[in-house]
């Protein structure tokens, strides 16, 4: 079984996000970029399936600017077998919407015929949490989102999902789309020899036109602003003072 893993190049999760002064977006020029953390977990999950003999090949795909090659090389260094880059944007500030991404991924699925697609549950830049569900809809496949555990049993996948209030286990028909949550696994670091080896692994370049997909956005960004700030309050000196403030000043207890 072939496993397809989409990966996104996003601002590194340790970088402080700065809104551009003109309100047109978040400043991404000369900012450290990395693989979306949830996608790293997805890549790790796919590699483990191959190591367990459940999967035969792990194909990673990224959609965005040319520099997303670096993200794909990271996935190859972790252990993915081959990569596809769909160059859909020329400016790092241009985000391809989940609907367009899902349509492109459908094109890749039609061409590659994987038995399983593993995605991160959301990208930490636009926080949409949509691509996996949308791809599943377009393919007419089953979906298992926010997964913390995945087991393939013949033509079914047994998935434990993180839901409000606890966990849910479901069985889905293969082929399927799984989107992974944080506790699925801890992704490995790529070793130096593997980083060198990854440079020789195949990376195919495509364009949206190859799949006949229009990536024009449906949502226009009117403006991007800093969130409303909260002012620091006062420091209290004792538990008694705290209780008094909460009772008399704030009136919340």
């Amino acid at each position: 079984m072939k496993v397809l893993v989409p990966v996104k190049r996003v601002i590194d999760y340790n970088v402080k996000v700065r809104v551009k002064a003109d309100g047109t977006g978040v400043d991404l020029a000369n900012v450290k970029m990395s693989m979306n953390p949830f996608d790293e977990i997805a890549v790790e999950a796919a590699i483990r399936l191959r190591e367990a003999g459940t999967a035969t090949e792990v194909v990673v795909v990224s959609i965005g600017v040319k520099q997303a090659q670096e993200t794909l090389r990271t996935a190859l260094a972790m252990g993915a077998d081959r990569a596809i880059l769909i160059e859909a944007a020329s400016d790092v500030h241009q985000d391809i919407e989940p609907l367009a991404v899902a349509k492109l991924l459908k094109g890749v699925v039609d061409a590659e015929a994987p038995g399983l697609v593993i995605c991160g549950k959301q990208a930490i830049d636009n926080d949409m949490n949509a691509t996996g569900q949308m791809l599943s809809a377009l393919l007419g496949w089953s979906q298992a989102t926010f997964a913390s555990d995945l087991a393939i049993e013949g033509d079914q996948a047994v998935v434990t999902r993180e839901v409000d209030g606890g966990m849910q286990t479901i069985k889905v028909k293969m082929p399927t789309i799984v989107t992974v949550d944080l506790r699925m696994n801890e992704p490995r670091y790529a070793s130096l020899p593997n980083i060198m080896k990854a440079k020789k692994k195949p990376l195919e370049e495509k364009t949206p036109a190859d799949y006949g997909v229009d990536v024009a956005p449906r949502l226009t960004v009117v403006k991007t602003a800093e969130p409303a700030g909260r002012k620091a309050g006062v420091k209290v000196g004792s538990v008694d003072e705290l209780i008094a403030k909460l009772k008399d000043e704030a009136g919340v207890i």
């Binding site: 996000v17 930490i124 949502l219 602003a225």
Partner: peptide, 16 residues
């Protein structure tokens, strides 16, 4: 809607 873990707030207009 919030983006970047609430570090920015985006105003979006839908054409759908």
């Amino acid at each position: 809607r919030p983006i970047y873990a609430g570090n920015a707030v985006q105003t979006v207009k839908s054409a759908d």
